[in-house]
Amino acid sequence: MEDANKLKEFEARIERGEKIEPKDWMPERYRTQLIRMISQHAHSEIVGMLPEGNWITRAPSLRRKMSLLAKVQDEAGHGLYLYCAAETLGVDRSELVGEFLSGKAKYSNIFNYPTLTWADIGAIGWLVDGAAIVNQTMLAKCSYGPYSRANLRICKEETFHKVQGYEIVCTMAQGRPAQRKMIQDAVNRWWWPSLMMFGPHDKNSPNSAELMKWKVKLFSNDDLRQRFVNLTVRQARAAGVTLPDPDLKYNPETDNWEFGEINWDEFWSVVRGNGPCNRDRMRARRRAHVEGAWVREAADAYAAKQRAKAAKSA
């Protein structure tokens, strides 16, 4: 009975557009859904360092190298704020990382695709960070205070990432034939996976309705995807690259760019672990964790010795 009243009050607060804060009462389902979403988001930021990190040592100029380093560093920072946001819900980071390393927790499919040429760095910044911005701009308005604030901060940085990526795309698209070929090839490979970043169709997205009712999400997967396509078609034209979809056409009545059907078999297959780089990404993260164990133990042991010394002298 008390819970029913609390739930009513909770939903009324959300209805009024108030933010829910860590100490506030919340339904268990809201908490667990948020933990799932925020930790997946955090794991994605961390795995996302790998495909782009792959090109840091080969960046074609010092300026590009520095902006790529800064970008990948930002992604680590995003992972960190998101783990902190998840911790406000009463879980700890090591537990979440453990679920990720065991393969139980998911991360964004997009990072299971390989970066084959430098052009991929442009395509990722433009399309992948671009899609992330559409999603995270919505999440910055979500009902859970800490997650909303983390996304607000993240979006500011993602905007730089997208600008840098788009600049690489435009430069290469106006470059030599070999560069034009590379950038078009990268766009061809990253376009469809970017559309998949918004998740399954609304009708196949079991959590969506509940998340929208509680304003964890404010728009559906399909609405966000459409918004992204509308933005990106114009940018592709300005840059001089082609999006690999023969069905792409403008509908003046809806003011939308309609697009072809996504290959959902591929999407689900990658979710289940069968993408081009799933195993490489997990292997890299597990190796870093295992090989870093002695370092973390040393840091803990040293901190304990320092605390003991301080206690003795106090």
């Binding site: 961390i46 360092m49 790998l50 990190g53 840091i56 040592t57 190298k65 380093l69 990948v72 560093q73 680590a76 920072g77 992972g79 960190l80 783990y83 890299a284 190796r287 870093a288 090989e291 870093g292 164990a293 370092v295 973390r296 840091a299």
Partner: peptide, 15 residues
């Protein structure tokens, strides 16, 4: 140092 990016022993050290 950039070769550590994404492979550090702790996220804070990656940063």
């Amino acid at each position: 140092l950039s070769q550590w990016c994404g492979h550090g022993p702790i996220l804070e050290e990656d940063l």
